[in-house]
């Protein structure tokens, strides 16, 4: 999952970013409304966490511009404003969720997962592809009853593939979903991680689940 965090309070931003990275999200962060808008329009995100009181351009303005541009990305407003009017204004401006500071980190992560599901191809929290099941909330993958031990990055790649079973997922797509803007683009890294995932799938009893489509990308075979 790739998430954008726009929050001007540096300490809070760092804490949210590190919590998201901890669960394997690729995270971009900004402390300024204009920069945040640039990130949001330049990359594709599974969800955006947006503060309202921001320097440069306030969060509601960022949100309205995104919606005016036709961007469908799910947005969670994370703000100190708790009045009903503020929530109504925020949601009406195009937000998908509204969370008042201070909030519990697990709740924030759960809401982000929920938002990401809404914007993704599959809505169920546990993605099933034949004998393989990928639990996006618990971040656990299993073949039948055999749980696979995956690194954060490996899980991220398997999750993206499991969201679109039977479809060819391009290397660039995998890259976009699993790495933030600061990572050096390198499709070779994707191949390496796909290799690791294949090996672990085979170990759990599911060989040849991920097929390579030469020149296009990878497909998670169904059934």
């Amino acid at each position: 999952m790739r998430i954008l965090v726009v929050e001007d309070h540096a300490v809070l931003r760092e804490a949210v970013v590190s919590a998201l990275r901890e669960v394997g999200c690729a995270v971009d962060a900004s402390g300024d409304g204009n920069e945040g808008l640039w990130f949001a329009t330049s990359f594709s995100y599974d969800a955006i966490i947006l503060d309202i009181m921001l320097p440069g351009l306030d969060g509601l303005a960022v949100l309205r511009r995104l919606r005016a541009d036709g961007k469908q990305v799910p947005v969670l407003l994370l703000t100190a404003r708790d009045a009903v009017e503020d929530r109504v204004v925020g949601l009406d401006a195009g937000a998908d969720d509204y969370l008042v500071k201070p909030c519990a980190v697990p709740e924030l992560l759960a809401r982000v997962r929920s938002l990401a599901r809404r914007g993704s191809f599959r809505r169920e929290p546990v993605l099933r592809c034949g004998r393989l099941s990928v639990d996006t909330a618990a971040r656990r993958a299993a073949v039948d009853a055999t749980t696979m031990v995956l690194t954060v990055r490996e899980f991220a790649i398997l999750e993206v593939l499991a969201q679109r079973p039977g479809e060819v997922v391009a290397r660039t797509d995998l890259w976009e979903r699993c790495y933030d803007a600061e990572a050096e683009p390198n499709s070779n890294v994707i191949d390496v991680y796909v290799g690791y995932v294949r090996r672990k799938l085979a170990k759990a009893g599911l060989s040849d689940a991920i097929r390579t489509v030469r020149g296009a990308g990878y497909v998670l075979a169904v059934g």
Binding site: H9, V11, L12, A15, A19, P102, C103, V105, L108
Partner: peptide, 12 residues
């Protein structure tokens, strides 16, 4: 905001 930052920092 600082409260959220403290909480998020500690929880993370």
């Amino acid at each position: 905001t600082p409260l959220a930052a403290v909480r998020a920092t500690l929880e993370a």
